[in-house]
Amino acid sequence: MKKTQAHRWRRQRGSALLLTLLLTLAGAALLGLTVDATSLLWARSNAQTTADLAAAAVALELERSPAANLEFLSESARASAALNGYRHGSDSVTIQLERQDGKTSILVERDAGVFFMRMVRPHPVAIRARAAVHTGIRAEGL
């Protein structure tokens, strides 16, 4: 009886350390996931604000020159987005002006890097934000 108990205790030695190690690893993985998810949310929100501001800039441009062509308006949207840290053509950023059914909208796209999720997903995550251009009032969402 004594021998069995001693054997069990010997087996249990180091279990607290092992358990803590496992919990720490699980905690670190959870932290990584949280950091990545939050930074993606932040990147999405930032892209949306940039799209809204670019849409507001295009609305102003349209008020000033209603006959402006799509290319000119695209460039003015890109100029506004560049001032907000989204330079078209660099860092996988694209700023596009789209016209569908008489409605004009701005589409901002960017690849957002992930840090910890890279282990399970090596590719960056594409972030997209769209804002409608309304002349007369400021862009939707602002």
Binding site: L21, G27, L30, L31
Partner: peptide
Amino acid sequence: EFAMALPFALTLFIGI
């Protein structure tokens, strides 16, 4: 063992 592991666990959780 608990005393050894505690600072790491605490650091991790406060860091989080």
